[in-house]
Design a protein around this nucleic acid. Sequence first.
DNA 1: CACAAATGTTAGATTAATATAAAATTTTTT
DNA 2: AAAAAATTTTATATTAATCTAACATTTGTG
Lengths: 155, 155
Amino acid sequence: MVKLRRVESLNNLSASLENYLETIAMLKRKKHYARIGDIAKSLNVKSSSVNVAINFLAEKNLVIHEKYGYVDLTDKGEKIALEVQRKHDILYQFLHNLLFIDNVVADKEACEIEHLVGIETVHKLEILHTLLKKYFLTKSEDIVNLEECLNKWKE
Amino acid sequence: MVKLRRVESLNNLSASLENYLETIAMLKRKKHYARIGDIAKSLNVKSSSVNVAINFLAEKNLVIHEKYGYVDLTDKGEKIALEVQRKHDILYQFLHNLLFIDNVVADKEACEIEHLVGIETVHKLEILHTLLKKYFLTKSEDIVNLEECLNKWKE
DNA sequence: CACAAATGTTAGATTAATATAAAATTTTTT
DNA sequence: AAAAAATTTTATATTAATCTAACATTTGTG
């Protein structure tokens, strides 16, 4: 019931293009700059593929790219990158720290879901997570023990 | 951090192909049969696109298709279809009935997430949903009131 | 039962995201 | 500063999923 062509998220960007923005933001945080080659390495794609994507994003005013130089986010691009990263973070925490999904799987699933869900859904997941952690679960208890936790707490 | 080419879920099927199987199962449930045109209408694609997909699925022994006749699922195809439908159902219930996401949005997001998450994740969401519904929430309370609910229940 | 309407199939085109390979530019080394 | 090495760019190809348009088959009606 889905078409996986262009125009997926609310930014009108495909999952792939959101990943490019996200990666640039991550590299800037870690290394203070992002080059075509860094992005390619991070995403496990060839630098020629990165070039195509960056040219497209530059046309949309989401990145700036001087030929043979650094890639940088515009304000608009940065805003999108931060939102995607926030979604990723909340989803990962929910899956790993609340549901106790293995960290590799949780990261993989967060990476994919982050491009599909609206901010409202993510926000509600965050509330749910916070409250449940606050009231019921200790760091080491798996969600499958939640029923026990609830009963214990009830007494 | 994702590649959106072939081989996505554990069935080695793309989201698109899983949707074809899911749709055939749905049509069989509703109308007791599925034809190329029914599938096309359900998925909002052209029947020529359905043909291409069905030929591929037939090669993989997931559907049977007599030329100009009905499309049917093999046992293998049905198993996959049912699993995807179960994922969809759990995700939709979680989003709509627990998080109170609008039904159209919840359905859209469930449709997309169902192809990305493992059965373990979905299973844990189901447990969480069941327990929370059982202990805290009445049908009409939004998750944003959860904190209040918890406090009330605590007294 | 013939033929029109509906339905299904095939062939070829398009788009997004990637790749490969070769050319262009920059950086490093000597 | 010239040659070698590394990086970036460009041009062209591939794959999945879709489309359009032309062709084939089946169904339904006079």
